[in-house]
Write a protein that binds this DNA or RNA. Structure first.
Lengths: 89, 89
DNA sequence: TCATATTATGCGCTTAAGCGAATAATATGG
DNA sequence: CCATATTATTCGCTTAAGCGCATAATATGA
Protein backbone atom coordinates (compact mmCIF):
# COMPACT_ATOMS: atom_id res chain seq x y z
CA UNK A 1 0.00 0.00 0.00
CA UNK A 2 1.63 3.12 -1.22
CA UNK A 3 0.55 6.48 -0.05
CA UNK A 4 1.65 9.57 -1.84
CA UNK A 5 0.74 12.39 0.46
CA UNK A 6 2.82 15.19 -0.92
CA UNK A 7 4.83 15.73 2.21
CA UNK A 8 6.36 18.75 0.57
CA UNK A 9 3.57 21.17 1.38
CA UNK A 10 4.33 21.02 5.04
CA UNK A 11 5.95 23.89 6.92
CA UNK A 12 7.26 23.15 10.36
CA UNK A 13 9.73 25.99 10.46
CA UNK A 14 10.31 29.30 8.69
CA UNK A 15 12.93 27.85 6.36
CA UNK A 16 10.57 25.17 5.13
CA UNK A 17 7.93 27.79 4.63
CA UNK A 18 10.30 29.93 2.65
CA UNK A 19 11.24 27.02 0.46
CA UNK A 20 7.62 26.26 -0.26
CA UNK A 21 6.96 29.83 -1.25
CA UNK A 22 10.03 29.93 -3.45
CA UNK A 23 9.08 26.72 -5.18
CA UNK A 24 5.51 27.85 -5.79
CA UNK A 25 6.67 31.21 -7.08
CA UNK A 26 9.09 29.67 -9.56
CA UNK A 27 6.51 27.18 -10.72
CA UNK A 28 4.43 30.17 -11.69
CA UNK A 29 7.33 31.80 -13.48
CA UNK A 30 7.41 34.81 -11.22
CA UNK A 31 10.37 36.78 -9.96
CA UNK A 32 10.40 38.05 -6.39
CA UNK A 33 9.75 41.51 -7.73
CA UNK A 34 6.70 40.33 -9.67
CA UNK A 35 5.30 38.44 -6.73
CA UNK A 36 5.93 41.41 -4.52
CA UNK A 37 4.13 43.63 -6.96
CA UNK A 38 1.06 41.42 -7.02
CA UNK A 39 1.07 41.15 -3.25
CA UNK A 40 1.78 44.78 -2.52
CA UNK A 41 5.06 43.86 -0.90
CA UNK A 42 8.65 44.77 -1.61
CA UNK A 43 10.98 42.43 -3.44
CA UNK A 44 13.12 42.64 -0.33
CA UNK A 45 10.27 41.36 1.78
CA UNK A 46 9.73 38.37 -0.50
CA UNK A 47 13.43 37.66 -0.27
CA UNK A 48 13.27 37.67 3.50
CA UNK A 49 10.31 35.33 3.53
CA UNK A 50 11.98 32.86 1.20
CA UNK A 51 15.19 32.85 3.18
CA UNK A 52 13.30 31.92 6.30
CA UNK A 53 12.62 35.06 8.29
CA UNK A 54 10.86 33.76 11.41
CA UNK A 55 9.15 37.04 12.17
CA UNK A 56 7.21 37.34 8.98
CA UNK A 57 3.71 38.52 9.67
CA UNK A 58 0.58 36.39 9.44
CA UNK A 59 -0.98 39.03 7.26
CA UNK A 60 1.98 38.97 4.89
CA UNK A 61 1.93 35.19 4.77
CA UNK A 62 -1.74 35.08 3.91
CA UNK A 63 -1.34 37.71 1.23
CA UNK A 64 1.50 35.88 -0.45
CA UNK A 65 -0.30 32.56 -0.32
CA UNK A 66 -3.36 34.16 -1.82
CA UNK A 67 -1.40 35.62 -4.71
CA UNK A 68 0.12 32.22 -5.37
CA UNK A 69 -3.33 30.65 -5.32
CA UNK A 70 -2.44 28.71 -2.26
CA UNK A 71 -4.03 28.50 1.11
CA UNK A 72 -3.12 27.94 4.68
CA UNK A 73 -4.40 24.78 6.28
CA UNK A 74 -4.10 23.42 9.77
CA UNK A 75 -3.81 19.69 10.15
CA UNK A 76 -3.16 17.20 12.92
CA UNK A 77 0.55 16.70 13.18
CA UNK A 78 1.41 13.83 10.87
CA UNK A 79 3.38 11.13 12.57
CA UNK A 80 6.90 11.25 11.29
CA UNK A 81 7.07 8.33 8.92
CA UNK A 82 10.83 8.81 9.05
CA UNK A 83 10.86 11.04 6.02
CA UNK A 84 11.26 13.94 8.38
CA UNK A 85 14.87 14.41 7.53
CA UNK A 86 14.02 16.53 4.55
CA UNK A 87 13.83 19.42 6.92
CA UNK A 88 16.83 21.32 5.77
CA UNK A 89 17.52 22.25 2.19
CA UNK B 1 -20.23 10.68 -3.92
CA UNK B 2 -19.82 12.46 -0.66
CA UNK B 3 -16.66 14.13 0.30
CA UNK B 4 -16.06 15.22 3.84
CA UNK B 5 -13.01 17.38 3.66
CA UNK B 6 -13.15 19.16 6.98
CA UNK B 7 -13.29 22.64 5.51
CA UNK B 8 -12.89 24.02 8.99
CA UNK B 9 -9.12 23.70 9.16
CA UNK B 10 -8.67 26.42 6.63
CA UNK B 11 -7.35 29.85 7.50
CA UNK B 12 -7.75 32.56 4.90
CA UNK B 13 -7.54 35.44 7.31
CA UNK B 14 -6.24 36.13 10.80
CA UNK B 15 -9.68 35.83 12.38
CA UNK B 16 -10.19 32.38 10.94
CA UNK B 17 -6.78 31.41 12.15
CA UNK B 18 -7.56 32.66 15.61
CA UNK B 19 -10.77 30.71 15.70
CA UNK B 20 -9.00 27.53 14.70
CA UNK B 21 -6.46 27.98 17.45
CA UNK B 22 -9.13 28.70 20.00
CA UNK B 23 -11.10 25.65 19.00
CA UNK B 24 -8.08 23.38 19.11
CA UNK B 25 -7.02 24.75 22.46
CA UNK B 26 -10.42 24.17 24.02
CA UNK B 27 -10.63 20.70 22.59
CA UNK B 28 -7.50 19.97 24.54
CA UNK B 29 -8.90 21.48 27.70
CA UNK B 30 -6.32 24.21 27.91
CA UNK B 31 -6.69 27.78 29.08
CA UNK B 32 -4.85 30.54 27.25
CA UNK B 33 -2.47 30.73 30.18
CA UNK B 34 -1.70 27.00 30.01
CA UNK B 35 -1.16 27.10 26.28
CA UNK B 36 1.02 30.15 26.68
CA UNK B 37 3.05 28.38 29.30
CA UNK B 38 3.68 25.36 27.10
CA UNK B 39 4.56 27.59 24.19
CA UNK B 40 6.70 30.05 26.08
CA UNK B 41 4.30 32.85 25.29
CA UNK B 42 2.20 35.17 27.42
CA UNK B 43 -1.48 34.60 27.96
CA UNK B 44 -1.93 38.03 26.44
CA UNK B 45 -0.20 36.90 23.29
CA UNK B 46 -2.47 33.87 22.95
CA UNK B 47 -5.42 36.17 23.43
CA UNK B 48 -4.22 38.41 20.63
CA UNK B 49 -3.74 35.48 18.30
CA UNK B 50 -7.20 34.12 18.96
CA UNK B 51 -8.83 37.46 18.44
CA UNK B 52 -7.24 37.74 15.03
CA UNK B 53 -4.13 39.84 15.33
CA UNK B 54 -2.88 40.05 11.73
CA UNK B 55 0.70 40.76 12.71
CA UNK B 56 1.32 37.62 14.66
CA UNK B 57 4.70 36.22 13.85
CA UNK B 58 5.38 33.10 11.81
CA UNK B 59 7.58 31.82 14.59
CA UNK B 60 4.82 32.30 17.14
CA UNK B 61 2.31 30.61 14.88
CA UNK B 62 4.53 27.59 14.39
CA UNK B 63 5.22 27.31 18.10
CA UNK B 64 1.56 27.39 19.01
CA UNK B 65 0.64 24.87 16.34
CA UNK B 66 3.38 22.59 17.55
CA UNK B 67 2.16 22.71 21.14
CA UNK B 68 -1.33 21.88 19.94
CA UNK B 69 0.02 18.96 17.94
CA UNK B 70 -1.00 20.63 14.76
CA UNK B 71 0.93 21.58 11.71
CA UNK B 72 0.95 24.14 9.01
CA UNK B 73 0.21 22.95 5.52
CA UNK B 74 0.10 24.75 2.22
CA UNK B 75 -2.47 23.61 -0.29
CA UNK B 76 -3.77 24.70 -3.66
CA UNK B 77 -6.58 27.10 -3.08
CA UNK B 78 -9.72 25.00 -2.94
CA UNK B 79 -12.37 26.15 -5.37
CA UNK B 80 -15.14 27.72 -3.41
CA UNK B 81 -17.79 25.04 -3.42
CA UNK B 82 -20.09 27.76 -2.11
CA UNK B 83 -19.50 26.77 1.46
CA UNK B 84 -17.20 29.72 1.71
CA UNK B 85 -19.68 31.76 3.63
CA UNK B 86 -18.53 30.29 6.90
CA UNK B 87 -15.81 32.84 6.82
CA UNK B 88 -16.91 34.99 9.67
CA UNK B 89 -17.77 33.70 13.12
C1' DT C 1 -25.43 35.19 44.17
C1' DC C 2 -20.74 35.39 44.43
C1' DA C 3 -16.14 33.78 44.62
C1' DT C 4 -12.97 31.99 41.23
C1' DA C 5 -11.14 31.24 36.77
C1' DT C 6 -10.46 32.90 32.39
C1' DT C 7 -9.86 36.28 28.86
C1' DA C 8 -9.08 41.05 27.27
C1' DT C 9 -6.46 45.38 27.95
C1' DG C 10 -3.19 48.56 29.55
C1' DC C 11 1.70 50.64 30.24
C1' DG C 12 6.50 51.00 29.21
C1' DC C 13 10.30 48.60 27.00
C1' DT C 14 13.24 46.41 23.39
C1' DT C 15 13.48 44.61 19.04
C1' DA C 16 12.44 44.12 14.41
C1' DA C 17 8.85 44.03 10.33
C1' DG C 18 7.93 46.25 6.37
C1' DC C 19 8.43 50.56 4.08
C1' DG C 20 11.05 53.53 0.15
C1' DA C 21 15.14 53.84 -1.91
C1' DA C 22 19.27 52.13 -3.20
C1' DT C 23 23.12 49.04 -4.00
C1' DA C 24 25.82 44.74 -3.56
C1' DA C 25 26.03 40.06 -4.85
C1' DT C 26 24.79 36.44 -7.71
C1' DA C 27 22.60 33.98 -11.47
C1' DT C 28 21.44 33.50 -16.27
C1' DG C 29 21.58 33.31 -21.08
C1' DG C 30 23.33 34.82 -25.51
C1' DC D 1 32.84 36.53 -21.32
C1' DC D 2 29.68 39.80 -20.24
C1' DA D 3 25.45 42.47 -20.21
C1' DT D 4 21.17 41.82 -17.99
C1' DA D 5 18.02 39.97 -14.70
C1' DT D 6 17.34 38.42 -10.28
C1' DT D 7 18.12 38.09 -5.46
C1' DA D 8 20.30 39.62 -1.09
C1' DT D 9 21.47 43.35 1.79
C1' DT D 10 21.82 48.19 3.68
C1' DC D 11 20.09 52.81 5.57
C1' DG D 12 16.75 55.48 7.99
C1' DC D 13 11.91 55.57 9.29
C1' DT D 14 7.39 54.35 11.46
C1' DT D 15 4.77 51.05 13.59
C1' DA D 16 3.79 47.31 16.41
C1' DA D 17 5.02 42.34 18.30
C1' DG D 18 5.94 40.22 22.30
C1' DC D 19 7.84 40.91 26.77
C1' DG D 20 6.94 41.59 32.20
C1' DC D 21 3.72 43.20 35.01
C1' DA D 22 -0.75 44.47 36.26
C1' DT D 23 -5.66 45.09 36.07
C1' DA D 24 -10.25 45.35 33.92
C1' DA D 25 -13.89 42.69 31.96
C1' DT D 26 -16.22 38.58 31.47
C1' DA D 27 -17.38 33.76 32.02
C1' DT D 28 -18.20 29.78 34.91
C1' DG D 29 -19.80 26.89 38.45
C1' DA D 30 -20.93 25.59 43.19
Amino acid sequence: MIEVKNMSDLARNPKQFGNLIRRARKQRGLSQAMLGEKAGLRQATISLIETGNPATTLETILTVLSVLDLEFRIAPRSKGTAADIEDMF
